[in-house]
Design a protein around this nucleic acid. Structure first.
Lengths: 188, 188
DNA sequence: ACCTGAACACCGTTCAAGT
DNA sequence: ACCTGAACACCGTTCAAGT
């Protein structure tokens, strides 16, 4: 007769999972802990998410949208070179503040096949790079800076810069070098 | 009286594990499969490696040494700009030919604390970058190109370049831009 | 010295049964 | 419609016992 009353919600589950991931890392996330955190038993999670991967995918999509928003705000209406630097620093700040979520975003096994979201996320960066490098080189330029940023922050949060020196300095140096190098290509 | 005869060796175990990782990925590697491949039972693996992480660490160290060798050979005695390009292409080729091993190298949970190997691995790159950017900017330049390469090949093997266009073109474009940008900084 | 069977704790996942 | 207990398969790991 009376259907069971929902003890929790998708939102609450995602929030709890996120907190646990921040604490223990993605690999340290056990569905049992998520269930306990929201006051249900493990099998009940499967009424809301197909499996563990689906839960992580939903969490990844949230974080990706968050990062995208941060980048849009960083770009604002600034002129291209300023937007370039602001976006780069915002990207790095996001990764440093939320390393586990950043790692989650780039988990290869959580690839979504929706190409639409990717286009939308890349749009502001492509616009800035088109202004800096010209339309012909916009895509390659975007891939250059995107690759650098991803590699840099990954190495940084993984603790892979261990030869001393200032990491901040390496970052600003690299941004200047890449920006100048890209601008150079515009002419020819 | 007669101690048990060894059925396998560290080398054979590592080779088998490597083959399985190439086939199924690191996360798909089960110790049971490794044991079966070398003709022993799972618990026997613990006589040779402290645990699963230790086995992966040994495999990572092997792959890292292999990559380092490839990079040294690519640099050879070439002039700096040539060495820069050769090393970059060799780096990318390694990752594309052995994506699972490349991923293993960068697993954050397998960090070794031995800073010695890292210094040695970075040495040839630092030498080239010192010639291109001057001693003051050698470290930052090395971090710039290293970050770019890591980010680029990671995105490539993860299938994260999905907006069309030529990936080869993006790579060569980026190398030129970064090389030129770094050279520019030498003067001032 | 190396190997093994048995056991343990801990996973993700399924499903029939409850309300 | 949502929740649960019980069970399953599959992990990594330990250890006493064999040779």
């Amino acid at each position: 007769m009376s259907p069971a009353v929902a003890k929790t919600s998708d939102r609450e589950i995602l929030t709890a999972a996120r907190r646990l991931i921040v604490r223990n890392g993605v690999d340290g996330l056990a569905l049992r802990d998520v269930a306990v955190a929201v006051g249900i038993k493990t099998p009940s999670l499967y009424k809301r998410f197909a499996d563990r991967a689906a839960l992580l995918r939903a969490l990844k999509d949230l974080s990706l949208a968050e990062l995208e928003l941060v980048l849009r705000q960083a770009a604002g209406q600034s002129p291209p070179s300023t937007a370039f630097n602001n976006m780069a620093h915002a990207y790095r700040d996001f990764a440093k503040c939320q390393p586990e979520m950043y790692r989650l975003i780039h988990r290869p096994e959580l690839k979504t096949d929706g190409l639409e979201a990717e286009r939308k996320a890349a749009e502001p960066a492509l616009k800035v790079m088109a202004a800096l490098a010209g339309n012909d080189f916009a895509l390659s330029s975007a891939r250059c800076i995107t690759s650098f940023l991803h590699g840099f922050v990954t190495m940084e949060i993984d603790g892979n810069f261990r030869l001393g020196g200032s990491i901040d300095e390496a970052f600003t140096f690299s941004l200047e070098a890449i920006l100048n190098g890209i601008k150079l290509k515009k002419g020819i």
